[in-house]
Design a binder for these strands. Sequence first.
DNA 1: GTAATAATAAAACGAACGTTCAATTAATTC
DNA 2: GAATTAATTGAACGTTCGTTTTATTATTAC
Lengths: 215, 215
Amino acid sequence: MARTTGSDGEKTEAAVREAAVSLIARLGYEAMSMRQLAAEVGVQAAALYRYFPTKQDLLFTLMREHMEGLLKAWDAARPASADPVTQLAAYVENHIAFHIERRHATHVSNMELRSLSHERLTRILKMRTAYEKELRTILRDGVEAGAFEIDDTGLTAMALIQMMTGVIVWFRPGERLSIAEVTASYLSMTMRLVGATISHGTARPSRRAGNAAAL
Amino acid sequence: MARTTGSDGEKTEAAVREAAVSLIARLGYEAMSMRQLAAEVGVQAAALYRYFPTKQDLLFTLMREHMEGLLKAWDAARPASADPVTQLAAYVENHIAFHIERRHATHVSNMELRSLSHERLTRILKMRTAYEKELRTILRDGVEAGAFEIDDTGLTAMALIQMMTGVIVWFRPGERLSIAEVTASYLSMTMRLVGATISHGTARPSRRAGNAAAL
DNA sequence: GTAATAATAAAACGAACGTTCAATTAATTC
DNA sequence: GAATTAATTGAACGTTCGTTTTATTATTAC
């Protein structure tokens, strides 16, 4: 046999991406075989090579598109207001929403970096650094404006990102907590962590209390 | 050739463990071959099987001992005082010190869980859960004592652990920050995050300010 | 309807994998 | 110093891996 009835390149490629994200997240990139992936898609292994020249090309494509999506999502979510608290809240909300929606892809992007060639690793890390820099800028602006109280903005940015991204490790939709509840909790923890003055949402704008309470 | 002069089982086994932690952390468990590991130790692949019956046995041993070490370290570091702030501070300090000292082993224990058999995965997760439960207990006690202000102790415990463990991702000894500086920063962030009242170290015991400041 | 093109199957490639086995030499025991 | 035990080598096993090649069928364009 050869070409099968109803076969369609676009659909097959989409199915390959989807299955690859899920399989790599579950088994790991090295542990997933091309034959396994092909079986998941319902196709022979050789057919995969029509869409991705090598296994590593497939991995890189998934990662690159994940990172591009993250940067684009933040670009769309970035608020017009220059208020650091508003900006930080938007960053946290966007980060958590994006990562919870893409748990598998996030796992792949975070865990399989070592399987990339040096050049491709650099490209992915560049995108990641750009994304993290956005948070550092918000924190630094907040400190300058007197809205945050932070020892070290670089360290704090890393700590916050690790904390937020970690949500995908334990969070399971449909269990005890809803996405909205989780997001609210992380927002509250973030604001406390950076020593934000109470200003976001509530009245009492610049009275320099200990830190933000409920939100 | 066969047995080499100066060969010693104990030394070889220790060298295998050390090389395995380093190689698995760098390449991943699936990507590391037994031949590669043997070469790193300066031995033939077959010699490894005198110490570990299978590749997975080797991985499991490394993970189990890492987790046992973590539990043991906390047991030794746990303060006599029942004060929640003191307890939390000790937990954070122990966690960061332990993980910074064992960056590679931590990477292995966190990233290679999926390569364990179901039964062994369960055993490792049981230890991990026991360790996390210690933190949840501290947080809950602190809330009951009025020392902490926390939405959800379970969620907060996970967030804190992700934040603290994340230090191994970006921290490099000898760079900008010392271990002591990093630990102090994480301690400060933790205390703010849980809304700790100012009590640890400083005077002014129970005046319920916004949260702990410098420490 | 015929020609061109897109999508796949089937089989095969050499290389590398985890692991086993028999042989061999070093160290230890008596 | 002979016998025993410990530590390792070197070669081989069957399997699986990523990938390539060739043939074959479905779809599309004219």
